[in-house]
Design a protein around this nucleic acid. Structure first.
Lengths: 333, 333
DNA sequence: CTGTTAGCGCCTTCAA
DNA sequence: TTGAAGGCGCTAACAG
């Protein structure tokens, strides 16, 4: 009932399969007008749809790329994915999205699965645990782009935010606003996820640059479940922070819960700023000061870079592309 | 360099391709232990990875399902996608996500593209413009599940929120709280997107049920860009609403911007409630009363339903599965 | 301009 | 217990 194939069309149109193939691939050049018509009719009557799988097998490409995100719960990931999709669809590529949950094992499985599916290339938010595998792919010259996180010496083109700068900008801003005792909280540092580390480093650097005190216990990486407790400790110091920077959107949400619970006024009792834009930053009271990363641009560019690699051009592209953060000052600081 | 195929393995292990195939598919039963070992070794040494595309061509299935969402910008969509992915990965299926932007033409293209790619089934947030195409697929008995939106007489299993009830619950709640002049705003009704219509209907029904006035201009569907203006008009009536229900998360955000601009107090100057949970509902001041839809459950179930259809069981499943909304009362009402 | 001929890499009888 | 052969649906020379 379904399986109408190219030979069916060929038979119906009284031509050979290859002629139909020509037609499908729009190579009309040397085709008789009547032949063309007959084929078109046959296709319509039979409601024939080419089988892309067979085509892929032959052509050794699938017009599909894979994206492996570390954690789809970050709104940044969602935005990047959206941008990648838009860009790929523009070039008639589909996108398979997988979520590795920051688990190197899961990531490895997805990489193997997607490569078995013969995807033409991969965009990955890499975890820190698969260095050898990455290297293998680089050696094979497999089209690969990293986003958001640097894997040292991987040799893979990487597109990400200048994370250090993001924190530094925030510190500078807070310094100018005369805050003295800055604190920084972000997600767990256990897995050596580079943006978190870089943001923390940028924070410390910023403090040093402006001769602000680097206070023990005032900069922490913490698992989401423990944010409340950690903040409780941080803010029960005799002299507590007067400004707090959140390393990402998830931390921000937890922090806001904490501040709410305490009933503190922002910014008079505690100034608050965050890295990563959130949908509610403008309508929150007070509106939140944040540094935004250009998620859309990052995604678009990652896609374009990958496309170039797939097409075999763009050898000359520099390895690391750092995007500048954008400081958006609102009333929370 | 790359292309190591089954014959390479066979050669290396001194067996035939079919024996390797057996091994790959874990049909060890009648295989000599030594043969097995030789094959295993050969596979490892060669770093052989089976080509799924070739397998798919032969087996006429790709272990891939397609999801076409209407608008990925709604957080509901994201959550449903996440749930579908989780569920499909559990069964070793990959998921290709496409975004139709509520455009029937785009949706049609994606459906054709995905079917050409031989995906094993489709989960769609349907637009209203492709009724015939849906019917074709149903006739072919193609595995298909709709989510979020009803297409009348399509004969497709559909999983969605009981949208009328969602609004009614909110109206009832506001009635009990003694609000008298209720208003409702949601996204554009132009495209006959059923949840929006149902939510609006539920609102009206609710008003009637509690003998609250149905006031002209107090219930509107509006394009996102016009929300500010429309609210401006609505609230410049001599007697303005004392409570407002937002039909979805995007409308809510716009509405909050409006209320902020006005500097009105919630709930004393205007009570506010919304359909669809948002990440900031708890930390917003005041916390927002909403009715949540069980996005995760809906996604999980859609996936399971599709899997059953793909496996050819589950013929007896009822066409429409309505999920009950959950009212979460917070301080905004 | 169109048809013939080989595969792509894998799976699946059917023999041996 | 293993191997040979044929074919999934399509493409790509190369003939004609």
């Amino acid at each position: 009932m379904k399986a109408v194939t190219m030979s069916d069309v060929a038979k119906k149109a009284n031509v050979s399969k290859s002629t139909v193939s020509q037609y499908i691939n729009k190579r009309y050049e040397f085709m008789g007008a009547d032949t063309k018509d007959r084929i078109r009719e046959a296709i319509e009557e039979l409601n024939y749809k080419p089988n892309v799988v067979a085509r892929s097998l032959k052509q050794k490409k699938t017009s599909t790329v894979g994206v492996i995100v570390a954690n789809i719960l970050h709104s940044f990931s969602t935005q990047v994915i959206r941008a990648i999709e838009d860009e790929c669809n523009r070039s008639n590529l589909s996108v398979i999205v997988c979520n590795a949950d920051d688990d190197p094992q899961k990531e490895r499985n997805y990489i193997e699965m997607l490569r078995a599916k013969q995807v033409d290339g991969l965009i990955i938010f890499p975890t820190a645990g698969n260095a050898e595998l990455y290297k293998e792919m680089v050696n094979e010259n497999y089209p690969l782009v990293f986003v958001d996180r640097i894997i040292k010496d991987s040799g893979v083109s990487t597109i990400l935010l200048d994370n250090e700068k993001a924190s530094e900008m925030l510190v500078e801003h807070l310094y100018e606003k005369k805050y003295k005792r800055l604190a920084f909280i972000t997600s767990s540092l256990e897995m050596k996820i580079t943006p978190r580390i870089e943001r923390l480093n940028g924070f410390i650097k910023g403090l040093e640059k402006f001769s602000l005190p680097v206070i023990d216990g005032f900069y922490v990486g913490v698992r989401m479940g423990n944010v409340q407790d950690v903040l409780e400790v941080m803010f029960s110091q005799p002299e507590r922070p007067d400004a707090l920077i959140c390393g990402n959107d998830l931390t921000l949400l937890e922090t806001l819960k904490f501040i709410n619970k305490k009933g503190w006024n922002i910014p008079t009792e505690i100034a608050l700023a965050s890295i990563d834009e959130v949908p509610y930053s403008e309508i929150f009271q007070p509106p939140l000061t944040i540094v935004a990363q250009p998620a859309f641009a990052i995604g678009t560019n990652a896609a374009n870079l990958l496309l170039e690699k797939i097409d075999g051009v763009g050898e000359s592209i520099k390895e690391i592309m750092l995007y500048s953060p954008e400081l958006i000052v609102r009333k929370s600081t």
